[in-house]
C-alpha cells in the first residue's frame, strides 16, 4: 500500500480526474474532499462491507433447528460471560 503524508489543504490525484484533498483535521477525524467524474462510485468502506454482509445474510437460509441450537448455546455462553464481566467488554 502506498502511504503519503499530506498537510491540511493539500491534495493528491488518482488516475484521470480524481482529486482527493484534506479539508479538515480535528483529533482523530480527517475530513476528505473528493472530486471525481460522475461515473466513479464512492462509498465509505464500512458501507460497502455492510451491503456485502447484508447480501450474504439474505442469501443464507438457516434451518430452524440450527437457530434453536444457537439460541440455547448463546444463552448459556452469555451466563458464562456475565460471570467474567471484564472478559466480555466487547469493543473491538
Amino acid at each position: 500500500m502506498l502511504i503519503l503524508t499530506r498537510k491540511l489543504g493539500q491534495s493528491l490525484i488518482i488516475g484521470d480526474g480524481i482529486e482527493v484533498s484534506i479539508v479538515d483535521v480535528s483529533g482523530d477525524k480527517v475530513k476528505v474532499g473528493i472530486s471525481a467524474p460522475k461515473d466513479v462510485k464512492i462509498l465509505r468502506s464500512e458501507l460497502a462491507e455492510t451491503m456485502e454482509v447484508n447480501k450474504i445474510a439474505a442469501e443464507s437460509r438457516t434451518d430452524r433447528s440450527v437457530l434453536e441450537l444457537l439460541a440455547n448455546r448463546s444463552a448459556i455462553l452469555q451466563i458464562k460471560a456475565d460471570n467474567h464481566l471484564d472478559d466480555s467488554k466487547e469493543k473491538k
Partner: peptide, 18 residues
C-alpha cells in the same frame, strides 16, 4: 443485529457496526 448464519453455524456472525 443482522445475523449471517452459515451451514457451519459455529461461524455465525452478527453485524454490530450497522
Amino acid at each position: 443485529a443482522i445475523a449471517v448464519i452459515p451451514q457451519e453455524f459455529r461461524k455465525s456472525t452478527i453485524n454490530l457496526k450497522s
